[in-house]
Write a protein that binds this DNA or RNA. Structure first.
Lengths: 112, 112
DNA sequence: AATTAATGCAACCTTTAGGTTGCATTAATT
DNA sequence: AATTAATGCAACCTAAAGGTTGCATTAATT
């Protein structure tokens, strides 16, 4: 369960959770109290965020404290930066697109 | 159909399309030839990317040329930057999270 | 020891996402 | 004028996303 960071930040509730956690680690219940969805819904978001590496969970007694790990967002900033770079003088762009698309497809097949 | 940028870049094929378009404007068919999915699948991705403002389409004859508009990615970089900023000395963070979550919910209701 | 709090798991539901195929339309070519 | 190329639309399918409720488990409290 090695979820994609882009996918992880696509959901507005998950972004809000990350924003909330920016003020410091909180346990699952504390987080879920902040949002108008059930605890389970938040729990699932946290599971996905953990899988994507955007948060880290430390158990302490019966509580599980979630802490935001912003490093993983570098993948996103870097993608944006690369896109912004002048495209010229880079190796054949269309070949790259094709390669990426192919690996996307084979990933999908492997999942199923 | 005013699609969210975070949502738009969540899909790997759409990211690859943007990467491909970084080398210059291309028409719909040219784009779809680069990827192992049907023309219609690509067409839908393009429609969504257009809705999110990430690409712009200019018609010329029977062709529609798609051009990438990177400005809209600022929303993403800014969100990341804000998250990275020290959270201290900002107004009550939990209230903000709550507000955001509420507006998310009411948006969902308005859609349905 | 009994109760309460914090969490996890399972089953289920509904909507959306991503994809397909077939047909229609309009602009360019021959 | 007939053909071909580029695109759009509609109907449909399947899987994943986001959500819910109910029950089980384990740690802390009283």
């Amino acid at each position: 369960m090695n979820s994609d960071v882009f996918q992880a930040i696509a959901d507005p509730t998950r972004r809000a959770i990350l924003g909330y956690l920016a003020s410091g680690p909180r346990n699952v219940n504390a987080i879920s109290r902040q949002f108008p969805v059930s605890r389970m819904a938040v729990y699932k978001h946290i599971k996905l965020l953990t899988a994507s590496g955007l948060i880290e969970v430390r158990q302490r007694g019966r509580e599980r404290f979630c802490e935001v790990r912003l490093e993983r967002l570098a993948e996103v900033s870097e993608w944006i930066d690369q896109l912004r770079e002048p495209w010229i003088a880079r190796p054949n762009q269309s070949d790259i697109a094709l390669q990426e698309a192919k690996s996307i497809r084979s990933n999908r097949k492997n999942k199923a």
